[in-house]
Nucleic acid binder design. Structure first.
Length: 394
DNA sequence: TCTGGGGTCCTAGGACCC
DNA sequence: TCTGGGGTCCTAGGACCC
C-alpha cells in the first residue's frame, strides 16, 4: 500500500550574499562599501553597492561602467572562492547532517527533528549566520520553510543579510502575491508563456486548469508550477548528490586567429585533468558550439566504455568537430566547449588506467625538461606498451 | 556593449529489444 | 507474418540556475 510521507519537514536555504564580490570585499578593505564587480569583460558578481546602480551578473563590463562611472572591477580569484566555499560548507554541515549543495555558495539544509539538539529553526538560522560571519567573514541569508521552493524563495526575499521564516499557516500569504517570474525555475521563456495566458502572479496560477497551463508550457512544467503555487513540493533534501557532467568551454571573438582545433585541445585538456583529479570517468562526449549569430548547437557521441583518457576524448571531440565543419564554415564560430556526461566514479580497472596516465604525464614533463636542457636531438621517446588506440566508437 | 563559464533537468524522436 | 505495448538507450535541443 502506498503510504504518503506525512512528516512535516523543516528546510533551510542558506545563500552567501554576492559571493565572489563579498570575498573580494572581505580580503581588500579598499573595496568595502564601494560599488565593485568581479570580472573585467563580463560581470561575474556585483556587490550590493553596485547593484543599487542597476548592475547585474552577466552584464557586459562596458555597460556596467556606463551605469556607474566610479565602478571598480577586479579579476576573479577562484582559489579564494573555492576556499571560502569549503569553509562555508563546513559550517553548514555542523547545523544539519543532510546538506545539499546547489552551487559554491548555497545549500539546502534539512533540519527536521533537530529541535532538541540544535534548537528551533529560527535559532539554527541565527546561529548559522553568526558562525559564518565569524569564521568565514561573509554574510549569509537564510530562508526557512516546509519545502525547498518556499525556503529558496524566502531567502531570495530576505536578501541581503537577512532571515525569513515562512510559517506553515502563512505560506499562501507569502507566495501568492509574488510575480510568476520570482518562482524558482521560471525564467524569461516560461514567464512570457504565462503572461500570454494572462497569469501574472503565483496566486493566479492556482486558478488556471492544469490543462490550460500545459498547452503553454508543457505537461510536466504545468503540473510542477501548479503544485508549487499550492505550496506542494515533496522534493527531499538530498545529501551526497554526485555530479552528472564535467565540462569546459572557451569563447573567442568571431574570426579569431587561433584555430578551433587548438582551442579544442586546450578545452579537452582542462576537462580530462579535472576528471582525473576527481577520479571520475565518463562515456558521452558532448561538443558545444556557438556560432557567429550566437545561436548554439551540440553534437554528442557515446563511447563503448567510460574513460577519462585525454587521447580518447580528444579523438571523439575532433571527429564531432569535423562533422560540424560545414555548419561552422557557413556560420562562423565564437565558442567551443566539451562536456563529458554519463559520469561515474572510476572503478579498480580505471584506477590503474588513471595511475598509468598520471605516470605518462609525469614522464612527458620529465622528457620536456630534459629536452630543454640538452636539446631535442639527444632525447628520443620509445613508445611504451606500443598499443595503438582502438576506435573509441561503437 | 554584442553577451563568461560552470552546471542541472526535461522533451522528443528514432533505434532496438522483448 | 503482422500488430501492439512497454521498456531502454542515444542524440539534439531548450530552459533555467548561479
Amino acid at each position: 500500500m502506498f503510504v504518503p510521507d506525512q512528516v512535516v519537514r523543516t528546510i533551510l536555504h542558506a545563500d552567501a550574499d554576492a559571493f565572489f564580490a563579498s570575498v573580494e570585499q572581505r580580503d581588500d578593505p579598499a573595496l568595502r562599501d564601494r560599488p565593485m564587480v568581479v570580472g573585467k569583460g563580463v560581470v561575474m558578481a556585483a556587490s550590493y553597492e553596485a547593484r543599487r546602480h542597476g548592475i547585474q551578473g552577466g552584464m557586459n563590463g562596458g555597460r556596467a561602467r556606463q551605469l556607474c562611472p566610479g565602478l571598480v572591477a577586479v579579476s576573479p580569484r577562484f582559489d579564494a572562492y573555492v576556499d571560502a566555499s569549503r569553509q562555508l560548507f563546513e559550517v553548514f554541515r555542523r547545523h544539519s547532517p543532510v546538506v545539499e549543495g546547489l552551487s559554491m555558495e548555497e545549500a539546502f539544509l534539512d533540519v527536521t527533528g533537530l529541535e532538541r539538539i540544535l534548537g528551533t529553526p529560527p535559532e539554527i538560522a541565527r546561529r548559522l549566520r553568526a558562525e559564518v560571519l565569524d569564521e568565514v567573514g561573509l554574510a549569509v541569508t537564510v530562508g526557512v520553510a516546509r519545502t525547498k521552493t518556499l525556503a529558496k524563495m524566502a531567502s531570495r526575499a530576505a536578501k541581503p543579510d537577512g532571515v525569513l521564516v515562512v510559517a506553515a499557516d502563512r505560506e499562501g500569504a507569502f507566495i501568492e502575491p509574488l510575480p510568476v517570474e520570482s518562482l524558482w525555475g521560471v525564467g524569461p521563456s516560461t514567464a512570457k508563456a504565462l503572461h500570454e495566458l494572462g497569469v501574472r502572479t503565483v496566486g493566479q496560477i492556482v486558478t488556471m486548469p492544469v490543462s490550460a497551463l500545459a498547452t503553454a508550457v508543457g505537461r510536466h512544467a504545468a503540473e510542477h508550477l501548479h503544485a508549487v503555487a499550492l505550496c506542494r513540493d515533496a522534493r527531499r533534501v538530498r545529501a551526497n548528490r554526485s555530479r552528472r557532467s564535467i565540462g569546459s568551454q572557451s569563447a573567442f571573438p568571431r574570426g579569431s586567429r587561433t584555430p578551433p582545433d587548438v582551442i579544442l585541445g586546450e578545452v579537452v585538456d582542462r576537462v580530462t585533468r579535472r576528471m582525473r583529479k576527481s577520479s571520475r570517468i565518463g562515456r558521452t562526449v558532448v561538443l558545444r558550439l556557438r556560432f557567429g549569430d550566437f545561436k548554439r548547437a551540440t553534437r554528442s557521441r557515446t563511447l563503448r566504455r567510460a574513460t577519462s583518457a585525454h587521447a580518447t576524448i580528444l579523438l571523439a571531440a575532433q571527429s564531432l568537430l569535423a562533422d560540424a565543419q560545414p555548419l561552422i564554415a557557413r556560420r562562423g564560430l565564437t565558442l567551443v566547449g566539451v562536456a563529458v556526461t554519463n559520469i561515474e566514479p572510476a572503478g579498480t580497472g580505471e584506477q590503474l588506467e588513471l595511475w598509468a596516465q598520471r605516470r605518462a604525464e609525469r614522464l612527458d614533463a620529465a622528457v620536456d625538461q630534459l629536452r630543454e636542457r640538452f636539446g631535442n636531438a639527444v632525447i628520443a621517446r620509445t613508445p611504451m606498451l606500443g598499443r595503438e588506440p582502438r576506435s573509441p566508437f561503437q
